[in-house]
């Protein structure tokens, strides 16, 4: 298990734990179909600790770096 941000660019991971992601962000991500068990990959990270773009199920979502760090994943 590791933070989503440490996932190698382009490789995929399975979300294992989102408990420490803030409530609102967790709700929104779950609305977009990203919950425990989803397969995600990191597409892009903007500089200066800016947002990171993740891909899940063919859709792209931008979230903040610190929220992405709170998502724990298992590299596949």
């Amino acid at each position: 298990m590791m933070p989503l941000t440490q996932l190698q660019r382009g490789s995929r991971g399975k979300v294992t734990d989102m408990a420490s992601v803030s409530f609102m962000v967790r709700r929104r991500l779950s609305d977009l179909g990203v919950t425990e068990g989803s397969i995600v990959s990191v597409r892009k990270m903007l500089p200066f600790g800016g947002p990171c773009t993740i891909e899940s199920n063919g859709q792209w979502i931008a979230i903040r770096r610190k929220e992405a760090q709170a998502v724990r994943v298992l590299a596949l």
Partner: peptide, 9 residues
């Protein structure tokens, strides 16, 4: 309140 940001691309 902290700020949040989730946006669908």
């Amino acid at each position: 309140e902290e700020t949040i940001f989730v946006v669908e691309l």
